[in-house]
Amino acid sequence: MKRKWQQDRGLQFRMIFTMFLLALVYLTFLAFLAYQGAGMMTMLIFAGGFMLLQYFYSDRLVLMTTGAKIVSESEEPELHQMITRLCAIADLPKPRVAVVDSPMPNAFATGRNPNNAVVAVTTGIRRQLNRSELEAVLAHELSHVKNRDVMVMTIASFLSTVAFFFVRYALIFGGGGSGRREGGGGIIIAWLASIIVWIVSSLLIRALSRYREFAADRGSAVITGQPSNLASALMKISGVMTRIPDDDLRKVEGMNAFFIIPAISKSSIMNLFSTHPSVEKRIAALEKIEQEMETL
């Protein structure tokens, strides 16, 4: 599952909440197994089974949590035709198309492979963007499908789960007799180590996710041939556009005294944790692609 545009708090919250619940069920179950004295192999098999379930049902899961509705060609002829043409250029089978009834501008793609993909947009994004900007956003989502991002991210998170359990078991049972004698101390160290592994791996997964976003932006630029459309779509959605003033300079001059310089300094820690790169960075990357296209 790939998400776009930080702005959409409601949708984001629902997704995170679902993920949280999923993780909770998952961990409770594994903890129960461990309590029953299941070995490391059994645990790994169960962990893998869960991941497979999530992988195979990713499309239905995401559609359910976001309330996205699959729309037919007769319901949304324009949206379908745009996606059809982009697919013809990108050489992809046409995905199912869904619409989320939400005023927030957002779009996402899901599905384990190009044959099971769904591309969804909110009603909000369709209102805010013009046709070529919407096309650029759709091309970005189709690039996620083409790059098989659901598969890549599922495998990445599975590996991080494996690492988590591996460290835990290695520390609890690996030390042979010495671990036993220390009793509680050894278990605490094992817990700490596995938590550190988990944190590091989730940071790595986020970095990977950001890299995939840049890759999908590039894909959109290549498919549409117009990187500036995605850039302006990103600006509109993130609200950067509203920062470009519309007022005449002479009119603003009189009010200057009341202005406060917005203190938007993004600390690097935020970048480390976010799954999407900042809009500024994405636009800068798109500008570079545009220059490349000019000089190639």
Binding site: I89, N147, D149, V152, R212
Partner: peptide, 14 residues
């Protein structure tokens, strides 16, 4: 092509 896709480098077919 699969490898390119996984690396996020998939390009358009000629």
């Amino acid at each position: 092509r699969i490898l390119d896709a996984i690396l996020g480098k998939s390009s358009l077919p000629k």
